[in-house]
Structure formats: C-alpha cells, structure tokens
Design a protein around this nucleic acid. Structure first.
Lengths: 339, 339
DNA sequence: CTGAAAGCGCTTACAG
DNA sequence: CTGAAAGCGCTTACAG
C-alpha cells in the first residue's frame, strides 16, 4: 500500500501546527481563512485522510452506527440497508450489521455486548425490534441515540415512519369501490406494530362504508407464506366465503394465491386478493398483486442521517422525525366483485 | 454508560503488567498457565473488552472487513450477509458493507476510496464483482487479502465456490429423464461467470444424451424477470416449440411462468420450466419451481472465516478454498414431456 | 516466561 | 486566531 500521510505531514507541508490541521479537519470555526485554504491545499496534495482509530481513541467516538434487524423480509432488509448505506457514504460513518432474534432469551445481552464491543455510537432499530420495549430500555441505559424505523411515537426523539394505517385505509376503500362487501383480512405478525396499524386502517374503511366485519373473516396470520395458505383454506371453505381478502403482506397474499390455484378459484374473477409491501413477488407472481409500496429506502436514509446528525450534536438543520407517504400499486389480483 | 475497564485495570487487578494482559488477550503462547488463569479471571470480573480503536491504532489493523456487492439478488445478498456476519460474530471483526455498480465508470476509484477510508483489512467480493479483473487488480495493489465468492480459480488464494456446472448438469439430466429432448435454455447475465458454468453443465448433459441444442433454443437473458418473459415470448412462438425451458435463475423462470399463464400454456403439462438459486419466489409461486439450492450462507461464512484467518496470519488450520455442493430441489414446474 | 518504555495519530485542555 | 504538551488504550520492540 502506498504511504499514508498523517496529520504531521500535512502540518509540515502547510507550515502550521497539527492542532490547526485538526481544526480544519473538524470544521472548527476559529481558523483564519487564509490558513484554512493553505491547509486544505496540503490535505488535497498529500491525499490525507484522518485515521479513524486515532480519532476514535482520543474522542471516544467510533464513527460506527449499527443496523439491528430480525430479518423480517429480505427485500425489506435490503432496502433498509441501501438507504442507510447511502446516508453513511456521505459522511465519515460506517454501518455495522447485526441480526437479532426478537424472541430469543438472550437478545438483550447479545445486543448490549455487540454495541459495547463494536463501540457503536448509535443504532437503527427496525421492526419488530423497534417495538420491543425491553430492548429499547436496555439500549437507552448505554446513552447512545436510537433511530427508530417505526410508527410515530412521541417518547422517541428520532424516527422515520410510514403511513401504514392510511395506506391500508386507502387500499380497503379501493376494494370496496370494486363492489366488495364480504371482505376478509389476514392480519400480520402480532409483534409488529405495523400489523395493528394496517388492521386499523382496514377497519376504519369498512366502518365508514357501513360494512360490518364478520368475525370469521378476521384471521390471525404471521406474515409467512404458509400462514396465508393455511388461512385461505380456513376462510374459503366457509359457506358464505369472502369475495376479497386483504392480506397484511405480499407473502401471505402469495399463499392465498397458491391455494386458489389448487382449488380452482380464479383470481380476480372469483376472488380478489391484495398484499402489502410491494416485495418482488408481488410483481413476479401471476396474477401480480395489488399492494402498497412504502419508500423504505428513503425512510432508512432518513433514519441514518438523523442518527448521525444527533451523534454529531449537529441536529439543528435536520428534522429528526419524518413520516413518509405510501403509494397504492394496483395490479391484476384486485378486480370487481362477482355479481 | 457504565465505566469501561481498560487493560490497566485488569493488570492491576491481576497483579501483572499490561503487557502480560495483552499477551493473554492476543493468545500469545509465552504465558505461564497460572498467570493466564489469573488474568482471565480478572478480565471476566471486570468485564474487560479491549478497545478496538487502540488496538487498531497501534497494530495498524482495523478489524473491519468489507463486503462488496452489486445487488444481484436481494435474497442472495441477504444470505451472503448472514453467513459473513456469523463468521464475524465469532471473532473481533466487524463487517462493513458497500454496494457497487459493476459497470459504473468510477467503480474502481469508489472502491479504493472506500477501502482506504474505512481502513479495511480485507474484502469479500461477490459476483459479478468477483469476475471483474480490473477491479481485482486495483484492490490487489492495496495489499489486502481478497476472499472470492466465485468459481475455483487457481490464481486466487481464498475462494468459496459452488458447483454451478455440476448442478446444471444434474438438473438437465433430470429434465431429460422426464422425456424431454426439445429443450431451450435462457442464459444468465453475461458478466456473471456462473452464467457460463450453468450453460456448460446444461450442454454437457445434452451432449451425453446425444441431444443437439437447436440454436434457436439458446437464448441470452440477463437474470431479470423481464428477460425471462420476453424470451419466453420469442421461443414459445416458434413452430416446433420446446417442451422444457432451463432458466439460469428463478426470476427468469417466473417470467416464463407469467407468460405461459397469459397465453394459456399449462405448466408442467404442456411446458416444463426450471430455475436456479431457490430464491423465495421459487417456493411461493404457483406452480412452485424446480431449482437448485446452493448453500450461499455457508459459502459466505467460509469466505469471511478464511479472510479473517488470512488477515490474522493464522491460516494454517483453515482451508482457504472450498467448494460447496448444491442440492436439486424438485417441485411442480418440472413434469413429464407431453406425448 | 515477564515487564518497562516508547509510540501509533489523533483530540483535549490549556495558554496566549 | 494559533500552538505546545499531554494522553486516549493499546501493541511493538527490546531487554532480561
């Protein structure tokens, strides 16, 4: 590897002290303009990059933020990552990953150890970890900022949120507009706050249209393909079976679709199905799934950016909380109610 | 945050010098057993974790390895990550991610800058980056080890490889055993060496069975759903259309399946389709796709483990190269040839 | 088998 | 607006 220049080299080249170079690196105000220009020139000339370990050792900062997740959906994760990475690449910070099992007994120990060992300066929490109060409290004792990818919560300082309830409401309105009134819902995993919000939006739409939700049309899924398949079997065997099923994510919708193929139920002619998340399968399956797309990558970018701003103490220009609008994606799986 | 103990605290508690503690931390051999026990006890008692920045600053190591990828497939990426993370979590190392565009003009500059800035001690390269010779050469000038997730290559010291050719061969044998002889292939993205290997395995099987590949049955895809759909249109419109299509990945197989639905071609009765990768869609689509599963997570774990061993100079006990067997997954999309 | 000293490349705390 | 000194928590290089 080519020789790496240090702060000393720059100081010598610019004819100033290392402290002045340090001031320039850290954008401290008390530097004469001419001096700054001089130093900047030397930095460029010598291709100087501050050594992070040295900076970290002295200043107690690691310039590392953690992304904690319980692999909810690989597409979701990938988008969260891309967004976080994008925010990091504009700064000095790096992203470190940790997969966690939300329900494992040693979750908290493991997370705390990880944060301490890697000396993380802040963490991003994704669902369902962002709904796990015990975990949150444990991390808070470490006195590092937490950025939540989660519904708005006024007891949190930093969050990036989607509009799950509103989107579910809008999608359900669409279903009803197609003439459906006997509508079932397959709810999402109980540990995810998004499940509840999607359910609420769904119910709100029904209520406003004067449609009563039949209790046998309310099904508890867990976001898995298998749960969608199994619950389809349960609800479609009923005498007065629904003409539309609102699935709380795309995998469960895919499960319903598979069941229908096997039983010869034609989609959307005999049954309409909707999903949520706009994961890849929603596009690649046939019939393609009507669903909701959330700007996950943008949300994650905001989450990382806010976290870094907070760590740097420079959070004046950055809104630490933001809600991101969702988009309805209408595809083949939603059609008119059979007459 | 609770007080963090340092090497000094441990030394004082154990009644030895900090150098001896350092020896214990780093598993250096020249320590008396009794001393070691004593120190280990103090370490545990004080919950001492060595400060990485200090270690890094002095030893010039960052304990950071990079995972470079050109988001080929989100599922693939997620598995690679999980495996790498697993290997890291057993060590002092952390994983840092970087998404790269294999075809972007400034790829090399970007990667080199990233490695230097983050002070990475080694990198893992995934396809198609692991097939990009210019990039590889540029990284080599940095004198850090590279771990390849790629086909065996004797000019590389560290690699983790799948058996793309063998698996494609076995899958094609299976197709032929079902009575097919008019078989088309949709090839993968040209920049991926796996595409060529899968094609080779396919051809080898055909040859051994005395089947000649009709040139119009050889189609150039790019791993995308859209390319599968488009090429299905091209090849299935032919007069003497194939009874089976070997798709070089699952997304392209999904594209073929969608086309068939729309044209009323029944799978597998009128057409058999196979995929590659066993991505989630292979399971969740209907008909589910016969495909090849590669132990991507295990491969990535090996890749990271080998890289870390190499960095630590302790690569004696670790095989730096390994080939991982694939598994045939037979599902609904492959059936007997129509008579 | 063990330790005292020096120093990695920065930032902190202080002085002027 | 600028700098000299000290020190972060380790490992290196050396000595015994």
């Amino acid at each position: 590897m080519s020789y790496k220049s240090t702060i000393k080299d720059v100081a010598f080249d610019a004819g100033v002290s290392i402290k002045t170079v340090s001031r320039v690196i850290n954008n401290e105000p008390a530097v004469a303009k001419a001096t700054k220009t001089l130093v900047l020139k030397s930095i460029k000339k010598l291709q100087f990059k501050p050594n992070k370990d040295a900076q970290g050792l002295r200043s107690k900062k690691s310039f590392l933020i953690g992304l904690l997740y319980d692999n909810p959906n690989k597409y979701y994760l990938s988008d969260v990552q891309s967004g976080s990475l994008k925010a990091c690449s504009e700064t000095n910070y790096n992203l470190v990953l940790q997969e966690c099992k939300n329900n494992s007994a040693n979750l908290i120990t493991k997370v705390i150890n990880f944060i301490n060992l890697a000396n993380l300066n802040g963490v991003i929490l994704t669902p369902p970890l962002s709904d796990n109060n015990k975990l949150i409290q444990a991390i808070e004792t470490l006195r590092i900022p937490i950025s939540f990818i989660a519904p708005p919560n006024k007891s949190f300082e930093i969050w990036s949120s989607a509009t799950d309830s509103d989107a579910a409401y809008a999608l359900t309105n669409k279903i009803i507009a197609m003439g459906h009134s006997n509508i079932a819902i397959i709810k999402g995993h109980k540990d995810h706050s998004a499940s509840k919000l999607r359910y609420q939006g769904f119910c709100k739409s029904l209520e406003e249209h004067g449609i009563k939700l039949n209790p046998t049309n309310e099904l508890q899924g867990n976001f898995s393909f298998e749960s969608g398949y199994k619950l389809a079997d349960q609800v479609l065997k009923k005498k007065n079976r629904p003409t539309a099923i609102f699935c709380s994510n795309d995998s469960m919708a895919a499960g319903v679709i598979k069941y229908c193929y096997q039983k010869g139920i034609s989609i959307p002619d005999q049954l309409s199905v909707t999903g949520f998340d706009d994961s890849m399968i929603a596009q690649e399956i046939w019939p393609s799934i009507s669903t909701v797309r959330q700007p996950v990558e943008k949300m994650a970018e905001h989450a990382a950016k806010s976290l870094i701003a907070k760590i740097g103490g420079d959070d004046s220009k950055q809104n630490l909380t933001k809600t991101f609008k969702s988009e309805l994606i209408l595809r083949e799986s939603l059609g008119k109610a059979p007459s």
